[in-house]
Design a protein around this nucleic acid. Structure first.
Lengths: 337, 337
DNA sequence: AGAAAGTGTCGAAGCGCTTCGACAACCTAT
DNA sequence: ATAGGTTGTCGAAGCGCTTCGACACTTTCT
């Protein structure tokens, strides 16, 4: 292993000079800098991460806590994780992957050991146990998701309230009166992950303003669950013509079942999904959808963290405005045509 | 930040004693151990990761390199990543998430800086640029995937050759004569990621032995691509009754199109998929499939790495035997019934 | 011309931990 | 009782880096 001292010797300068060449924290003459850089290249020198962390008390690592369960929005999570890793590298940081499994202990461990300089938390629950710990440390953090109390925290998320409203507005404009909402799995609601409830709230209140009727049913993904859910919906509200789907793994089953029942999309019923664009464009009917801006959130989280670590930036809650893309799954309500 | 020295003082022992309590590398009397542990708890002590890494030249971090592109098997990757992170924690390691973006440089950086003690590489190409570097370092590594030359490397993967053979055997047993293989996107083949080719080879050679006809067509995911591909297949081989699908995002489109064309599954055509069980069970027809043992591979990779780091374990190539689960998408060939 | 300010470099201290050798204190076996 | 072995603890060195203050030298201003 090549050390700083060896580089220094090779270049005929002191160790501190090499260090300053590397960090740029003091001015170095062009000649010296070149000599040092040359030696670094020749010897194939890489600074030792541990020594660096010890001396500077900065690890240049950002911890990313992902949910353990893979029962929901897996592609979204992956996209965020990759955006985080890529953006972090751009700023000279590496990413430590933590699963939610350890819970609050992971936060303690990471902040206590100086393993990471900052944290990004995904899958935040409304009253998350990790939040008090984050507030009690001076280590910067960003939540992807929105807890009930955001004081002292920085959060990014899609504005799910507006998303719900946007979906219902679109359907209202097309003349639909009876809307069914295919929600996430019941477990998601029990866990009080905020986004599902926020979508629903936004959707309901806008529907009330517009005078639409809304029926909400949670739904596990897959065909069997969807079959049951759909049957119940048409049983209770036979006149349903608009669907809002928030569960990726319910999208395809819903389309298949509707088709099977002879209900044409979009002629008889319209479907709006909240899902990544990829899912929307690859479905059997190209779906009118509100995209989940996974990459944007990941990138923002890292950039905000880096700003904070540089002494810039402050706590804030950023809600990304939803954008609805009209595709082939929505059309005028049958009675309106 | 609480340090070892503070703990030592609080417990009335020397720093080295505390260190030995923590590591268990020397025997400590029960009384002392308890006093130290008590102090650790009271002060909320966490060893500093950087200092530890510097002094011991071990970071207790395993690097995981995931592919940057999210165009294929995303859920599989996520499952592996989570299994890796979880298993690693069980053994006292953390996981550093690297994207393939940096390529070979990432390997250099990580091994050079002592950031991680070991590496796991996913999405290995047949002649991967990173392999020479791995062979040239004494840092343990495990590949998930199988390159062309495995000398001096440890690899885990599903036995894709056997997987292909297994699929075709199953269809042969049911009397199918004409098999179509819906492969991965052309890009996957161009990239020479081994698994796609190995599946095909295994499948073809077994088909030859059994006297079946095989038509292979790569296919991007999604409906549009699938429509084209399927049209070509029935155009060239109208008698096709058996399908093997290796592209997750082609599964649902295929089923929908077959249905649409009035070809019943499994009465008219049979479909075997190579995909995670979750995809197989949630599809519109419960799919006969060979599972991709994502968790098992992730777990194995970590455990092998830990063994190597402990001085046990050696280089080896582990090919996991495929298991075919019969579900509702395969049945006797029409002419055979 | 001399003081003040800036430049470029170095030496040394120290970050918090691990680990080695040393050494008391205590057992055993002769 | 004494040599030899254990056992439990300590002190000190050192891992490779950053960073502070010091210092020589050059430039600029009055």
């Amino acid at each position: 292993m090549v050390t700083l001292a060896e580089v220094a010797q090779h270049a005929g300068v002191s160790a501190s000079t090499v260090s300053y060449v590397l960090s740029g924290k003091r001015s170095i003459s062009g000649a010296t800098r070149q000599r040092v850089e040359q030696s670094i290249r020749e010897l194939g020198y890489h600074p030792n991460a541990g020594a660096r962390a010890l001396a500077s008390s900065k690890s240049n690592i950002i911890a990313l806590m992902v949910p353990l369960r893979t029962d929901m929005y897996v592609p979204v999570m992956m996209e965020i994780a990759i955006a985080v890793a890529t953006t972090a590298r751009l700023h000279g940081y590496d990413v430590l992957l933590l699963t939610g499994e350890e819970g609050p202990d992971a936060v303690r461990r990471v902040t206590g050991s100086g393993l990471a300089d900052a944290m990004i938390l995904m899958d935040v629950e409304l009253a998350d146990e990790r939040l008090p710990l984050l507030r009690g440390t001076d280590q910067p953090s960003v939540l992807i998701g929105l807890p009930a109390d955001t004081t002292g925290l920085t959060c990014v998320d899609l504005d799910f309230g507006a998303t719900g409203a946007l979906c219902v507005e679109h359907l209202a404009k097309l003349g639909h009166q009876d809307i069914a909402v295919i929600g996430e799995a019941p477990a998601v609601y029990e866990r009080h992950t905020g986004f599902a409830e926020r979508t629903l709230d936004g959707l309901r209140s806008r529907a009330r303003e517009l005078g639409l009727r809304v029926l909400h049913r949670p739904c596990e993904g897959g065909y069997d669950a969807m079959t049951m859910t759909l049957a119940r919906i048409f049983d209770e509200r036979p006149g349903t013509t608009g669907f809002v789907v928030q569960n990726e793994s319910a999208v395809e089953p819903l389309l298949a079942l509707l088709r099977q029942q002879g209900r044409a999309v979009p002629e008889d019923v319209s479907v709006v999904a909240v899902c990544p664009d990829q899912v929307a464009t690859q479905a059997s009917v190209r779906l009118t959808s509100v995209a989940i801006p996974a990459q944007e959130m990941g990138r923002y989280a890292v950039e905000h963290l880096v700003a904070k670590l540089d002494g810039r930036g402050s706590d804030e809650v950023v809600l990304i405005s939803p954008e609805l893309t009209v595709r082939a799954s929505t059309g005028p309500a049958p009675s309106a045509s």
